[in-house]
Design a protein around this nucleic acid. Sequence first.
DNA 1: GCCGTTTTCGGCCCGACTGTTTTCAGTCG
Length: 583
Amino acid sequence: MARSNDEVAALLQEYADLISITGGDAFKARVYEKAARSVGGHHADVATLDLKGLQQIPNVGRSIAQKVLEYFDHGSVSAVEELRAKIPAGVRRLTAIPTLGPKKALTVYEELGISSVEELADAIHEERLRDLKGFGPKTEENILHGISLLQSSGGRVHIDLAMGLADDIVAELSAVPGCLRCGYAGSLRRMRETIGDIDILAAATEPAPIMRAFTELPYVTEVIGTGEKKTSVRTSKGLNVDLRVVPPDSWGAALQYFTGSKAHNIRTRELAVHQKLKLSEYGLFDVESGKKIVSETEEEVYARLGLPWIPPTLREDRGEIEDGLHGELPDLVTEADLRGDLHSHTDLTDGLAPLEEMVEAAAARGWTYYAITDHGPDMAMQRMTDERMLAQRERVRELDGTYATRGRRGGLRLLHGVELNIGPDGEVDWPGEFLAGFDLCVASVHSHFTQGREALTRRIVRACENPYVNIIGHPTTRIIGKRPGIDADLDAIFAACARTGTALEINAHPDRLDLRDEDILRAGRHGVKFAVDSDAHAVPHLANMRYGIGTAQRGRLTRDDVINTWPERRLRGFLRKGRQTER
DNA sequence: GCCGTTTTCGGCCCGACTGTTTTCAGTCG
């Protein structure tokens, strides 16, 4: 199921952890971490590369390349096995406990033979940690607290929950007197699909009132740490929030720094070092004189490093630094570029709102076209029939008549579509004669997720080859945190989409975000077009488009790649696909 | 262990906070 790149990345990361735990060279550990990231994000399948090809991957040299080959030849790597033999897997798991890192993990293992979270908890209750150097009563307390958090927390949360909380905190803190600027940074600003914790940044000359207001927010359940510049809290939403308050003239450097990612920051700091500069959250400084050069805006910081401003959604060290240096950053699609939504539901099937309300909401968003795509009859529980679908079409045409001429910019055009079900053999709900009556067809997999890889692949490819299928909806069918994506040959599907003129959906619902960013990058190399769709089942879902756009940006898409940014005429041309009989 | 427009050897991102320390190590982001 996992791509071989992910397997190798996990192995290299494990080796890096084991090196840290055994007190090995810290620089060596870091190289393996960097190599793990590079391999995980590399576009080509590492299983297909030879020694030379592997060494083309950044941070992979001869030694690591040979280990990768050894892994594919023998299924294991002797150097990793040696360390595994020395350090039980449970010791590595100890480092997942907050406040307990590799050094303390090794200490408790060497001194007390502790190699599992349970044993560690027991040892603390039996007061056996007391005599260890560097361990005091507070350390014991922190570890116990960390263990309970580890066992109870589900880890990362979906982006919409984090965004809601962050928007609220930013609004609250912005209202504190003396707060000159406030915003969120971190993985939320980078629009990652899940969020581990929220980073809030504020600018003020006097931090104390902002810190106080922050710790007094109603959903703060615990203050983890608080200082003059930084405060960390836990919230009743299950999310930790960090607040940093910086002097106003450091805003740009601080925002750049706290937006990350860590890997991106390491690269920007290295660029600084090579120019005898030092980059920190307080600014870009000349190393020799210690004088500050720039710090007020992100643009200035990047510019002084020789880079254009890099959109936060690209800051993952996936080539954006190199592209920036060469002036080759993509001109990313934005939410403002969207002209409409091509996948939505009404209460005719499993939506909550009537057609009229959904259309009114779409018009209020200023869109120039909007597609209604309720489920076809193969989703049996939705009780769709030919008659009901044709009746809806008639009503859509009527509404189209009234909305098309409203407003200044030509109003809103309505498209009547359907979300077809891709059956086990790639068949869909209706024959071609009936499908020809729709303005567009989305087709999605909703069942039989565990068919073999070949069958799943063939099934979706066959749907692409249907001349009436325009968009493959939520292509991998994953539900974040609940259901993995189907095990299909995505490259074969992407190639079929490109060949047949079928778009891939980027489903903007925060539970799905399907395709995900890595898959978009792969699909993009096949020359596929995309549709960023809300898949709205209710009026508020239309606002989820921001997450779909964030994901599209992380996949480096431009306006030209996304068919629902196109003018209506060009879109309709695309939707005609290979149909012979159309006007 | 990787890497190179100061380098094939000698560097390798930077700072805040905590707890256990009498000046600093560990952890985190």
